[in-house]
């Protein structure tokens, strides 16, 4: 009972069910084999494909916990790849490690600045997050095109390829990067007070303000982090294909990320967040995508399955459904038509 009530229970069930279904269909699905000292297999593929989404979703989790949302991450992904590849492509020495490092540095710095920009609009100017980030969502791909001058920039630098397709200690580098950042965020939010203060701001902004919490700087920080993480995801995606496609890199990743966060049990209304839930959510989305491919269905139909998952998840979270499912307890007065203030005896 305790287990069933854990908030990661249902997401985990969904993930396991997907994996089991795949294993029944393809018995070798779960096997991981070693080839040239590298790990291969469907599970590794799922993790590797999840890496950029996970990065974006991590930032999104924190933003959503503060009652915000960041629609611009897809555009930031595109900008990040565009900057890095354009720099490498136009440098006199595109194969050198130092060139790649500088390119990565510039790209990430710019993405961080974009995150700071979003945070400024939201926390200083007080613009609604959905609108504030819509600006960069709209303009961002144009900026990426401007950087690549409308071309799909391609490079061949082996050092850059490592980010998306390299292996280290037998594991894909992208998994290591995503895993490392996941651990970093977990430590940052749970070993410092950042996580608790983010939740406090998301749950009750006014109570937090009166308790002296600096909500402005906290909100600003999470948007900046989200920009940075989207930038890393952008490097990964562009390194995977060794090309910067300003139009299609990271297309709809903001929606997938929001989906991963919601599946992971973090409410869009803000407050309590679960990084583990987001991790599972990202895995579910990638497993779903892979399943569709394995089943021989055209991958383009994936949105349909996503729609079903979103609808199922939000309906499970719907107050109406929850109330019906919860045991009937003695009810207070029904707020007949208007939601009243919290049920405190008002004067």
């Amino acid at each position: 009972m305790q287990l069933v009530r854990h908030r990661l229970f249902w997401p985990l069930v969904a993930l396991v069910a997907l994996l089991v279904a795949n294993t029944i269909n393809t018995p070798s699905f779960m096997s991981v084999r070693v080839q040239d000292g590298h790990l291969f297999g469907a599970l590794i593929d799922i993790m590797r494909n999840s890496a950029p989404l996970l990065l974006v979703a991590l930032g999104m989790t924190l933003v959503i916990a503060t009652r915000g949302i960041d629609l611009s991450v897809g555009a930031v992904v595109a900008i990040s790849g565009a900057v890095a590849l354009s720099f490498i492509g136009s440098s006199p020495n595109p194969e050198a490690l130092s060139t790649v490092l500088v390119a990565v540095g510039i790209a990430l710095a710019l993405c961080f600045v974009l995150g700071v920009w979003n945070g400024f609009l939201v926390s200083v100017l007080g613009i609604q997050p959905i609108i504030a980030t819509l600006v960069l969502m709209t303009a961002g791909r144009g900026i990426a095109m401007l950087i690549t001058e409308g071309q799909i920039t391609t490079i061949t630098s082996p050092a850059y390829r490592v980010i998306g397709s390299g292996f280290w200690l037998g594991l894909p580098v992208s998994i290591l990067i995503a895993g490392g950042i996941f651990a970093l965020v977990a430590v940052l939010t749970r070993r410092t007070a950042l996580g608790m203060l983010i939740e406090a701001v998301g749950i009750n902004p006014e109570a937090s303000r009166l308790a002296g919490v600096q909500s402005r700087s906290i909100v600003w920080t999470v948007y900046a982090m989200t920009g940075l993480f989207a930038g890393i995801a952008g490097l990964m995606i562009s390194s995977n294909v060794m090309a910067a496609d300003a139009n299609n890199a990271g297309l709809f990743i903001e929606l997938d990320a929001i989906l991963a966060v919601v599946i992971g049990g973090t409410s869009l209304a803000g407050g309590k967040f679960s990084l583990g839930g987001t991790l599972i959510g990202a895995f579910i989305i990638q497993t779903l995508t892979l399943t569709v491919t394995i089943l021989g269905i055209s991958p383009s139909v994936t949105p349909l399955f996503k729609a079903i998952v979103v609808i199922a998840v939000v309906l499970m979270q719907a107050p109406v459904v929850r109330r019906t499912m919860a045991s009937r307890r003695p009810q207070g007065p029904r707020p007949a038509a208007v939601e009243s203030k919290p049920v405190e005896v008002a004067a």
Partner: peptide, 27 residues
């Protein structure tokens, strides 16, 4: 509305002002 942070624990609520005073970095 302006006091407790309902979805946080007793412990977190008790520590909120003290922690806010120190800033997030110094848990």
């Amino acid at each position: 509305a302006e006091g407790i942070v309902g979805d946080l624990t007793v412990r977190e609520n008790l520590m909120l002002a003290l922690q806010a005073d120190r800033g997030w970095a110094r848990r």
